[in-house]
């Protein structure tokens, strides 16, 4: 039997800030269409790992591949810039604090990159903006500026902005952590919709309920290593590792407080 070739392939990822080792030899394969959750305590290196995938926080050791392309190639500056700008078009990223462009309307937020990078005509860009905003349920906000949107709406626009580049993978770094509790669900619904469309997703989250219902696999990280991984049912209901058990117990206690 042959394993399906990994879509995203992280090999022996290492990252240090000075003497602080944040990622210690992490390997992680994600298949096309797979949805992976990364959980773990604060400071365990989840964001660092996620941000290494599009080389936003370059690794100090190891490789990251998307299909047949190595993302963190060592190249002379000019060539590297060209390469990375190209591969990043295939990797959508959603941040905890949205990072919408406040000086641009919702429409312009979504179409800026496709227009600049794919040379879309005005008409094509308009159609694209409408398509993506419709998908996140915000077509009626197309003319708004970000300052007039709620947190949940901002995050949905941020997702539409990422999707407008037609990425092969979506990375989410605590996409709902900055939201008021009543706004979390609308963002989760959008992510569920993407899951149904078999978008490949890597999701750093503190929401165990969401991870359990949406994800195919859960990675538990602590202190820069993958402690345990497996299907959600296994990780959440019956984890092998003591550190996983402790983390989940503490997390549940906090969530119920």
């Amino acid at each position: 039997m042959t394993e399906p070739k990994p879509f995203v392939n992280i090999r022996n990822a290492q990252k240090s800030y000075g003497t602080l080792e944040v990622l210690k030899d992490i390997s992680l394969q994600v298949a096309r269409g797979e949805i992976v959750a990364i959980i773990g305590p604060s400071g365990s290196g989840k964001s660092t790992l996620l941000r290494a995938i599009n080389d936003l926080d370059p690794l100090t050791g190891g490789e990251v591949w998307l299909e047949d392309t190595q993302i963190n190639k060592k190249l002379p500056h000019r060539q590297y810039e060209k390469h990375i700008n190209q591969v990043r078009q295939d990797i959508g990223m959603v941040f905890q604090h949205f990072n919408l462009f406040p000086h641009l309307s919702v429409r312009e937020n979504v179409t800026l990159a496709p227009k600049l990078l794919k040379g879309l005509s005005d008409d094509a860009a308009e159609a694209l903006a409408r398509e993506q905003l419709d998908k996140v349920g915000l077509l009626d906000r197309i003319d708004y500026y970000p300052s007039r949107l709620s947190g949940g709406q901002k995050q949905r626009v941020a997702i539409a902005r990422a999707l407008a580049m037609k990425p092969k993978v979506m990375l989410f770094d605590e996409a709902t952590s900055a939201l008021d509790p009543e706004l979390v669900e609308e963002v989760n619904l959008v992510m569920k919709k993407l899951a149904e469309e078999h978008m490949t997703m890597i999701i750093v989250t503190h929401e165990m309920g969401f991870a359990e219902t949406v994800c195919d696999r859960v990675i538990f990280m602590d202190k820069g290593v993958v402690v345990e991984e497996g299907p959600p049912s296994k990780i959440f209901r019956n984890p092998d590792n003591e550190r996983t058990q402790n983390f989940l117990r503490k997390h549940l206690a906090n969530a119920n407080r």
């Binding site: 599009n54 936003l56 810039e81 700008n85 190209q86 990043r88 078009q89 990797i91 959508g92 990223m93 941040f95 604090h97 990072n99 919408l100 462009f101 406040p102 000086h103 800026l112 990159a113 600049l116 990078l117 941020a158 902005r161 990422a162 580049m165």
Partner: peptide
């Protein structure tokens, strides 16, 4: 800094990021 990150992650170059995202703000 999140503005630069958001611009770079959709594939904008350093120059485009400056020109279309940072400088207008």
């Amino acid at each position: 800094k999140g503005q630069t990150e958001a611009a770079r992650t959709v594939g904008l170059s350093r120059f485009q990021t400056m020109r279309y995202v940072i400088l207008p703000q």
